[in-house]
């Protein structure tokens, strides 16, 4: 890992700032969603499922050399796009780094409405799960 967690987050925020229009931001997320690394069908099981109100999210993770790796999928493409952002930022970081993070950057890039707890969507739970996984792996 050459860059720090902070640098990775900054890079995502900068990518997003290229788009002024809301629709363009979503278009970009859709692209990311479509290009997300494939997730094994056999891991789309209930114990990998993070249940949200609307879209479903499946998450798998493993620890290797004290670094956490994530892969995930969703039945909704925009959620997949955000998953792609999250994985890009957090996969391969140490549990300590992740546990200490505030995950505020998703709101910083203006995706707050995908994250509001009242929508109780899979993404909020996914962030919670990533955080818990990191806590437990410390």
């Amino acid at each position: 890992m050459s860059c720090t967690l902070e640098e990775k987050k900054q890079a995502v925020i900068e990518d997003f700032s290229l788009y002024d229009e809301w629709l363009d931001k979503y278009e970009y997320l859709i692209e990311l969603g479509k290009n997300l690394d494939p997730y094994p069908e056999e891991l789309k099981t209930d114990d990998h499922l993070i249940k949200g109100c609307q879209s479903r999210v499946w998450l798998d993770y493993w620890l290797q050399d004290n670094r956490l790796y994530f892969r995930a999928d969703s039945d909704a493409i925009i959620t997949k796009g955000i998953i792609s952002l999250l994985i890009g930022v957090y996969s391969g970081r140490t549990p300590e780094e992740i546990a200490a993070d505030d995950f505020g950057f998703v709101a910083d890039i203006g995706l707050r409405d995908n994250l509001s707890p009242t929508r109780a969507n899979g993404l909020v739970s996914m962030i919670e799960t990533i955080r818990t996984v990191a806590e437990n792996a410390r």
């Binding site: 809301w22 629709l23 979503y26 859709i30 039945d75 909704a76 493409i77 925009i78």
Partner: peptide, 22 residues
């Protein structure tokens, strides 16, 4: 082939308030 939540999010950005989900 399109998820209702995605449609609602995109329509929202076009100014249209819809409802999606159960």
């Amino acid at each position: 082939g399109v998820h209702h939540e995605d449609l609602a999010l995109i329509l929202d950005k076009m100014g249209i308030a819809t409802r999606s989900g159960q």
